[in-house]
């Protein structure tokens, strides 16, 4: 009784926060539940759907395409994420030196790719790495080195996509690591310096250990969005997966089974099946949830005041 009275008295508060909860329920929770129903169906999206029980899940477990896509996603992602974190750490340490000039210029230049659309990144990288007239091959030719078929070799594809991840993500990691470094108590540095520690020793014994939680947290949260890799391969191959499926990712596979634009015309076209696409969606959700659960342990510490 008193509870309803309290709720009624605070209706403005509840009304103010309700849009988030309503939208989250309607467009995040409901789709996930609906996907469970869809996963029991076989449906090309046009005709009638057919109940198939758990056959789509069995298909997922037994299939080679989903596991190939999963492995390939992790592979490409690691090829981009690991260099970007190491590189950004080095740059953050360099840029955090006192008395460094043009700090703002470097920060701005490194962050600028983050503002750029992935579509733009894909268009430019495709031009730079194009097999015949791309600048990389022109330079290799000029240096009398053998050229490389970047966009038709599966490893070339992975390298190009990883390069896009590095180029676009570097500035973001850099700024976060710099903020982490600037939060380190300067007394620690001075004490270490008085004890005769050199710059390398200070880096290894103070900067890196203090930054460790930041690095782990950012790496994990970045992984959740990073593993949803889709735009780069979709654009490079117009909805297909590229030669030898070198650009196939989990989200791209789901898009192909959904019958998204361009997917049907690709060399590696698949027959649209919305039931199977739903199962893929759930599998991606479970994989990312496991990573999110891991990062939530770090999040709690960082978010609660």
């Amino acid at each position: 009784m008193t509870e309803t009275a309290a709720v009624r008295r605070h209706w403005r508060e509840y009304l103010s926060i309700s849009p988030f909860f309503v939208l989250f329920a309607a467009f995040s929770i409901v789709p996930l539940i609906y996907a469970l129903y869809l996963s029991t169906q076989q449906w090309d999206g046009i005709g009638d759907s057919k109940f198939v029980g758990l056959a789509q899940w069995q298909r997922l477990v037994a299939s080679n395409d989903f596991w190939y896509a999963t492995g390939n996603t992790f592979l490409i992602f690691a090829m981009g994420q690991i260099p970007v974190i190491i590189g950004a750490l080095i740059a953050a340490v360099l840029l955090s030196q006192p008395r460094l000039r043009a700090r703002g210029l470097y920060q701005t230049a490194f962050f600028l790719p983050q503002v750029t659309s992935l579509v733009v990144v894909a268009v430019v990288f495709q031009a730079v790495f194009s097999n015949r007239f791309g600048l990389t091959n022109v330079l290799l030719q000029a240096a009398k080195l053998p050229t490389f078929q970047w966009l038709t070799d599966p490893w070339g594809i992975r390298i190009v996509i990883a390069a896009m991840i590095i180029w676009r993500g570097f500035g973001y990691f850099l700024l976060i690591f710099m903020a982490g470094i600037s939060a380190i108590d300067t007394g620690l540095y001075e004490a270490a310096r008085l004890d005769g520690a050199g710059p390398v020793r200070i880096l290894g014994s103070i900067t890196l250990p203090v930054l460790r939680p930041t690095v782990i947290f950012v790496a994990l949260t970045g992984t959740i969005s990073g593993l949803q890799l889709f735009t780069e391969p979709q654009l490079l191959f117009g909805g297909g997966s590229g030669p030898d499926r070198g650009g196939l990712t989990m989200m791209l596979l789901q898009y192909q089974y959904l019958g998204g634009p361009g997917a049907a015309t690709a060399q590696t076209a698949v027959t649209p099946d919305l039931g199977y696409a739903s199962v893929i969606g759930w599998a991606v959700f479970i994989i990312l949830l496991a990573i999110a659960a891991l990062s939530f342990r770090f999040t709690r510490r960082g978010l609660e005041d």
């Binding site: 995040s28 996907a35 949803q228 789901q254 959904l258 969606g281 990312l288």
Partner: peptide
């Protein structure tokens, strides 16, 4: 930190 939004089909159907 919940990775919702990865299920394309149900959202599309909704």
């Amino acid at each position: 930190v919940l990775p919702t939004g990865v299920a394309l089909v149900p959202s599309y159907q909704i």
